[in-house]
Amino acid sequence: MGQILSRRDDAVLTLELSNPGKANALDFAMLAALDEYIAQIDHDDTLRAVVLRGTAGGVFSSGADIREWSALDPKAFATEWIGEGNAVFRRFERLRCPTVAVIEGLCFGGGLELALCCDLRLAGTGARLR
């Protein structure tokens, strides 16, 4: 199960996607954690920016953790994974403060979708977006 690690430096909150061994693939737990951070950010007027990144110097995200949704029937997949996941991404996209995706390495599928929800994307020389 992945997680989202956070670090705050003054008015900047850094959220780090962390799902070791799975190239930071997004799973249900990570989407729920991201949604919780969104709610906190919306209520914290002292935050001036949010930085979203993968593991420093490594992968941003390989997209969805297909093992999470491979057992879902089509209706559950559409509502739980696609519907709820897209709703979280839309809430992230509408955050009141600027958001920056720092992309170093792999950024595929749903990981790229999440990066595109940010206001600004900074890609390192080793970034691979698909």
Rank of each mutant, 00 (worst) to 15 (best):
A101H: 05
L31D: 03
I38E: 02
S6K: 13
P20W: 01
D119H: 13
P98F: 01
R91C: 02
G85I: 08
G57E: 07
A25Y: 03
G54Q: 04
F28L: 12
F92Q: 05
A64T: 09
Q40G: 05
A101F: 07
A71S: 14
A78Y: 09
G110L: 14
G85H: 07
R67G: 15
E16N: 01
I82F: 08
A115R: 08
T99G: 05
S18L: 08
D45G: 10
A127N: 09
A76D: 15
L17K: 03
L116W: 00
T46Q: 11
A11S: 15
A32K: 12
A87H: 07
F108C: 09
L112K: 11
I4E: 04
V102C: 04
L122V: 15
S70W: 09
K22V: 01
T46V: 04
D27R: 06
T46P: 00
R90W: 00
L122D: 01
A23Y: 10
H43Q: 14
N19Q: 11
L116E: 14
L122C: 09
R48E: 15
D35E: 11
V51E: 12
S62E: 14
L26P: 08
C107Q: 09
L34F: 05
G110P: 00
D10M: 03
V102A: 06
I38F: 02
D27L: 06
V102Q: 11
L15Y: 01
V51G: 00
E68W: 11
S18A: 13
E93S: 11
F89P: 00
D44K: 05
S61E: 10
R130L: 14
L120G: 00
M1W: 03
A23W: 10
F92H: 03
R53V: 05
R91T: 01
L31E: 05
G58L: 07
A23I: 01
F108G: 02
L15Q: 07
L13Q: 04
A23K: 12
A78S: 13
G109M: 06
L106C: 10
A87Y: 01
F60P: 08
L13S: 04
A33F: 00
A23D: 15
I41V: 15
I66R: 14
A76Q: 14
I41E: 06
A87P: 01
I66C: 02
C97K: 02
A101Q: 08
Y37T: 03
W69C: 15
G126P: 02
N19L: 02
L122M: 12
G57Y: 04
G2V: 05
P98A: 11
F89N: 03
T79F: 06
V100S: 01
G63P: 10
M30I: 07
L26M: 14
D35T: 00
L120K: 12
C97R: 05
V51L: 09
K22S: 10
D65I: 07
L52A: 06
R130Y: 07
L120I: 12
D44N: 12
V59N: 11
L52W: 07
R67L: 13
V51P: 00
A39K: 10
S70P: 00
G54A: 06
N19S: 11
V88N: 04
G54T: 04
